[in-house]
Amino acid sequence: MIRLDSIDRRQALRYAGMRGDADTAISALAETCEKRLLSVISPRYIHRVYPLEFCENGIACKGSHLLLTGADIAAHLQGCSHAVLFCATLSQAADRAVRMAQAEDLTAGLLTDALASAAIEQVCDLAEAEILAGLPDFHATWRFSPGYGDLPLSLQGEFLDALDAQRKIGVCVSDSGLLLPRKSVTAIIGLSEKPIERHRKGCAACNLMNTCPYRAKGAHCK
């Protein structure tokens, strides 16, 4: 469904802990890892538009069993009549590529993992653009994922069920709320018929806010 021709290596190197420019050896290794990763992954995504119902105990996605709870998602979806639920994955091949790279060379493992993280973000961006292009009558919010702010990770199971994601793209959730294959993302995009303020995703919604190495230095991850 989605093809990636390249991965944002700069971003990946940042994820891997590089600051400033990488030396030639690391850059060359990153390029090799990027090629290998691109040759094995099959990115996929699935989405569905649900009408929303704002209830006392949360926001219901009508026609499914999913109830979105917490103040942050309520603020995020304020003014929205519908929401896109979507889930994207790089597939198990990415997990395998990271394991293989690690067994061969730990640096390659670290870089492959970081490249895969960058790649799934790119897949999400492309998927979002594709989905929203099919919904020209709506104004959209940014992507909000379970685990951001006070939207609990524990609803990943019902989120995936609302998309039949296991059957359609092979994504499961572990007991600890971890999406598997590992490089998978679930997200919610609010839709409104009227223009809405499209807030930027900020640090407040991030669960790494207190430990973020970028913030410690007064910077941001994006």
Binding site: L13, A16, R19, A22, L29, L106, L110, L111
Partner: peptide, 14 residues
């Protein structure tokens, strides 16, 4: 000291 970063440290360690 921030002169070397994680991928380089791991390369050296490997």
């Amino acid at each position: 000291a921030g002169k070397l970063f994680l991928p380089q440290l791991i390369s050296a360690a490997s």
